[in-house]
Design a protein around this nucleic acid. Structure first.
Length: 721
DNA sequence: TTGTTCCAGCTTTTT
DNA sequence: GCTGGAACAA
């Protein structure tokens, strides 16, 4: 057995992890320390050296992208197919298990998966049925509540009745929601996990079957697991000490989504025989970048403790640019990118990272202006587009007419003369009889209680859906999709000129037909699912970001969250200001502030060669002008690592000192200095008290001054002074 | 029933 | 400043 290819590319710590005997293993892997490599090599080690059968391998990740990458890398190291291994996301694996045992899990054979969008629609429907005003109780909040309960493993019946009116209302909706999903034959994302947990908990035979099957369990991004995922893992590996988990407490940035870093500590007490290995050597970044990252994260309390180091030299300092406003910030960044490209580097190697999606606009404008190709991540994904979701809803109804979420979505899309009134009548009947909308529709159209026009529309709709089944029976999946898109009237609807971006939408629908035609269903020996149902699940669960422009060399724009797991030679961390990053809503709670700091750590550690951090002194936010101060995170970076460019006003310096940093040459040209106010002048404001003028712009009635008051500085019209 | 206009609200996101 | 949802008119 030649094991050199598995072992040779590893450092000591990595090798210790990969070759450790089967036991509970916790690998604390710092950013850029080769975490995926360790997982991949561990799996191959188990197979090639310890003769573990590929069927016994389970590897769970959070995203499809990570799962696909892992599978690909295992296959290339193994030089063999990894199809016998279960490598997938938590949700994907749960889905697979439920498909195999749908009946035991109390689900219909062809159950479908609801995405969060559909989930919210159902909740909206419940709220309106219960005559609850959305202004009082937004659907989003209910959605949150329900998911939170499910993530904690709680059904509505498990929650203790409360006297609090609000809690009771939440509970009531939760209960109705469970019933609605039940009769629609659908499960939401959180339900996938909870169902599998309950299935394995309650069915001993099944539990033992899976415990025996998966002799080696690997978990990626362990710090992001939530309560139910952890519980699920412990069911699969009660005490056999075969869990190999990899994570980094410093990169836990999904607390707001229910992830529990505490699972790392829990793991240690739950598996007393566990072994911890820290991967601290970083292969990604220069010394300066790494030192900055270490300094920042050291401000957090209760860390597991890890210090990244590198053999690389310090490299360039971190450039900090104090922009005049958000436009200046974008200009500065794009200029640096142009220089980078002119020096013969690739745009693909550049990332602009921001805290919130709204910040991308300024950069996009500037990039467009300079004709620099770019790509924004995190937009609407293909299967989330309205036209695609509508087409899929018709297909879902074809697969299962009781799917209320699908029914609700397209019963009047394209409009076919059934307005709110008819649909209300349907809902009412469905609620009374506790049946699906479809069944209610059938009986309503038989009863002939509707107006002639509504009755006619309704029966046409019912005929349409029923026809689908007969007329598509012998068609291939691609043909089926094509047929449904045409016959439903969707294609005609989106082809109209008055529809905005009609050409794109038609194109997308055609693309859906292509996707269906190309879809290959490889049934698992124990699943028997119709091809259509399999395609629909795929669309919800596994559709990853379309990589259409993969081949074009373009600048990458994304949020810090999206950037996790990626690396770029040149990184711009932009909008590093109080209120933006850390986000306003996270400032007042220590836990959330620490999560923001971890996010900052993630951002810094994305950079390989050169990192730019920018902040603006003036920024339009929500259509309003603000004068944010620079982020506290900047202050946490050691000065000697920074190269501060155009440091204009600096909050930490005394006011007199900062005024002296202004000179005629650094003042933006639009600033008029010949007003009767002067920079440095002391003023008194009725509301804000005493202050000092830091900056003046505009003239006459439009003259405004940036004034530093006790606390913060703000722009005010001088005529009001 | 359908199309338009107006107004509040606004981190992060995968499955 | 943009978006989605609700209130309006046709």
């Amino acid at each position: 057995m030649d094991i050199t290819s598995i072992i040779a590319p590893l450092n000591d710590a990595q090798r210790a992890a990969v070759t450790a005997p089967s036991q509970a293993m916790l690998i604390l892997a710092g950013a850029g320390s080769g975490k995926t490599r360790v997982l991949v090599h561990r799996i191959v080690w188990q197979i090639q050296v310890n003769d573990v059968s590929p069927q016994s391998i389970l590897a769970v990740t959070f995203t499809n992208k990570a799962a696909n990458e892992m599978r690909g890398r295992v296959e290339s190291l193994l030089e063999n197919s990894a199809s016998a291994m279960w490598i997938g996301t938590f949700h994907g694996i749960a889905h697979r298990i439920l498909r195999r045992h749908a009946e035991q899990a109390g689900l219909p054979k062809d159950f479908q998966v609801l995405d969060s969008n559909d989930q919210q629609r159902l909740i909206k429907r419940l709220l309106s049925d219960l005559k609850i005003d959305e202004k009082e109780l937004p659907a989003k909040e209910v959605l949150w509540f329900i998911n939170e309960q499910k993530d904690a493993g709680l059904r509505s019946k498990d929650i203790i009745q409360s006297t609090d009116k609000n809690t009771r209302r939440f509970l009531r909706i939760y209960r109705d929601y469970e019933a609605l999903c039940e009769r629609s034959g659908v499960v939401d994302f959180a339900e996938l996990l909870l169902r599998v947990y309950e299935l394995l908990r309650d069915d001993e035979n099944l539990r033992i079957q899976y415990q025996e099957r998966f002799s080696q369990i690997h978990v990626d991004e362990f710090q992001d697991t939530n309560h139910i995922q952890y519980a699920w893992l412990t069911l699969l590996s009660p005490n056999r000490d075969n869990l190999f988990v990899v994570g980094d407490d410093d990169q836990a940035i999904y607390g707001w989504r229910g992830a529990k870093i505490e699972n790392i500590y829990k793991f240690q007490s739950h598996y007393p025989q566990h072994k911890v290995i820290k991967l601290e050597q970083n292969y990604r970044s220069t010394g300066a970048i790494l030192k900055a990252a270490n300094e920042i994260i050291a401000n957090n309390k209760g860390r597991m403790g890890k210090a990244l180091w590198t053999e690389m030299s310090d490299g360039e300092k971190i450039a900090v640019y104090a922009a005049y406003d958000e436009k200046d910030e974008a200009k500065y960044v794009v200029e640096r990118i142009q220089n980078w490209v002119e020096a013969g580097n690739k745009r693909n190697d550049v990332a602009i990272l921001y805290r919130s999606n709204a910040q991308s606009r300024q950069f996009e404008e500037q990039l467009m202006l300079t004709k620099t190709p770019y790509r924004v991540y995190g937009g609407l994904r293909f299967f989330d587009r309205a036209e695609i979701k509508n087409a899929l809803a018709y297909l879902r109804l074809l697969a299962n007419p009781d799917d209320d979420a699908a029914f609700d979505r397209i019963v009047n899309t394209p409009t076919r003369g059934m307005g709110a009134k008819t649909i209300d009548a349907l809902r009412q009947l469905a609620n009374e009889k506790q049946v699906s909308l479809w069944i209610a529709a059938v009986s309503l159209s038989e009863e002939q209680k509707l107006s002639a026009r509504a009755a006619n529309s309704l029966s046409n709709f019912l005929d349409l859906i029923m026809q689908f089944e007969n007329r598509t029976m012998d068609l291939s999946l691609g043909e089926k999709v094509q047929f449904v898109i045409e016959q439903s009237g969707l294609m005609a609807f989106y082809s109209q000129d008055k529809v905005e971006k009609s050409a794109d939408k038609v194109e997308n629908l055609k693309e859906l037909v292509n996707a269906a035609a190309a879809f290959k269903y490889k049934p698992d020996e124990e699943e028997n699912l119709s091809e259509l149902a399999a395609f629909l699940s795929y669309a919800v669960l596994e559709s990853s970001e379309p990589q259409a422009d993969e081949f074009e060399d373009c600048v990458q724009l994304m949020t810090l969250h999206t950037a996790k797991g990626l690396e770029f030679p040149l990184v711009f961390l932009v909008g590093v200001e109080e209120g933006l990053f850390p986000a306003q809503k996270s400032i007042y709670e220590a836990g959330r502030l620490e999560e923001e700091r971890r996010l900052c750590y993630v951002g810094i550690t994305r950079a390989m060669q050169k990192l730019y951090i920018t902040h603006a002194e003036k920024r339009f936010l929500y259509g309003r002008e603000t004068t944010p101060s620079k982020s506290r995170f900047l202050g946490e970076l050691p000065k000697e690592l920074l190269d501060e460019i155009r440091p204009k006003s600096n909050v930490s310096r005394p006011v007199t000192a900062r005024i002296s940093t202004f000179s005629a040459t650094t003042l933006p040209s639009e600033i008029k200095t010949d007003s009767h106010y002067q920079i440095g002048q002391k003023v008194n404001h009725a509301t804000f008290g005493n202050g000092v003028i830091l900056n003046i712009e505009g003239e006459g009635e439009k003259e405004r001054a940036l004034i530093k008051f006790r606390g913060d500085s703000r722009w005010l019209m001088t005529i009001y002074l």
